[in-house]
């Protein structure tokens, strides 16, 4: 029976650490803007390198 008691305590500790992580996430402003990050991830820095290739492709199509 004792083992269950320990398990309960462990599970509570884990649950509380998740709650703490959630509170930290709110405090750091992650929930203030829930839309822009989904767009930001689609436009990345390295596009500058790949664009030359793409541009020649589109030009080919045009001509």
């Amino acid at each position: 029976m004792n083992i269950i008691f320990y398990l309960i305590i462990i599970s509570l500790v884990v649950a509380i650490s998740f709650l703490a992580a959630f509170i930290w996430a709110i405090r750091s402003g992650q929930y203030d803007d829930d839309y822009t990050p989904s767009m930001r991830i689609l436009v990345e820095d390295d596009m500058i390198d790949t664009n030359i290739e793409k541009q020649t492709n589109t030009n080919d199509v045009k001509n």
């Binding site: 689609l42 500058i48 664009n51």
Partner: peptide
């Protein structure tokens, strides 16, 4: 060097 603006 910002013309990938037009690719998005």
């Amino acid at each position: 060097g910002m013309d990938s603006y037009y690719l998005i």
